[in-house]
């Protein structure tokens, strides 16, 4: 995992690209909708979430690409080192490098758009619980599509439907908070999805990698 993070820091451009993309897309929205604060406040959480989905989606391929290209994944499978552990490390590294900074930037952009603070907290929690799930589910899809001819497009095709439930619950939480209701149920549900994804996704990713290598 540390190796991945160090490697990522050596390729600084690649590391920052998704984050810059994220910020820029968010900045595009006020231009599209006008600078009316009330309207922006309403569409902002959705914007942040959708942009987070897209940014994760774009950065996902990096999880396995270099190792796939130079054949190290094959070597690791052959060496008998538990592939699941490696996958967990890779996903954690991916989340630390995209998910975490994404949340921080999301908070800043939300301040930029003078977002009400109590809702911001909910948004923060949904992102904190949701982005790891994005990385985890994404890893499975990446393992399935990496190295294919139309890999990038295909990746989005399979991954976005799987992301929808997370988006729905995150948005429900933010909406409930705006309406002054409790958000416990949605947050619990998101945590449930996180736990489920944490237990199952690494296994699925490892087995898909094996399938791809066979």
């Amino acid at each position: 995992m540390w190796r991945d993070i160090i490697l990522a820091f050596r390729h600084r451009a690649e590391l920052f690209n998704p984050l810059i993309f994220f910020t820029m897309v968010i900045v595009l929205f006020p231009f599209a909708f006008g600078s009316d604060i009330g309207l922006l406040n309403r569409v902002m959480p959705g914007t942040i979430w959708i942009t987070a989905l897209l940014a994760t989606n774009l950065s996902l391929e990096g999880i396995f690409r270099s190792d796939f290209d130079d054949g190290s994944i094959e070597q690791i499978i052959l060496s008998g080192y538990p592939l699941t552990l490696l996958v967990i490390a890779k996903i954690t590294a991916h989340w630390c490098l995209t998910g975490l900074p994404l949340i921080i930037i999301a908070m800043f952009t939300a301040f930029l758009l003078s977002f009400p603070e109590h809702v911001l907290q909910t948004l923060f929690f949904t992102l904190l619980l949701g982005t790891p799930v994005l990385s985890l589910i994404g890893a499975v899809a990446v393992a399935l599509t990496i190295g294919l001819r139309s890999g990038g497009m295909l990746l989005s095709l399979i991954i976005l439907p799987l992301y929808m439930p997370i988006l729905i619950f995150a948005m429900l939480a933010v909406e409930n908070k705006m309406a002054g209701m409790s958000v416990d149920a949605e947050l619990y549900f998101l945590s449930g999805m996180l736990v489920l994804a944490m237990t199952l996704a690494p296994l699925a990713t490892a087995s898909s990698l094996r399938i791809r290598m066979s």
Partner: peptide, 28 residues
């Protein structure tokens, strides 16, 4: 989900790999 499954299914040249890869997707 169905469309993604079919897209993944058709992306592989090897049928066996295609079947197993898309089975993972279906289970997810």
């Amino acid at each position: 989900l169905y469309l993604g499954y079919m897209a993944l299914q058709s992306a592989f040249d090897d049928r066996r790999v295609a079947a197993r890869a898309s089975a993972v997707l279906a289970l997810v």
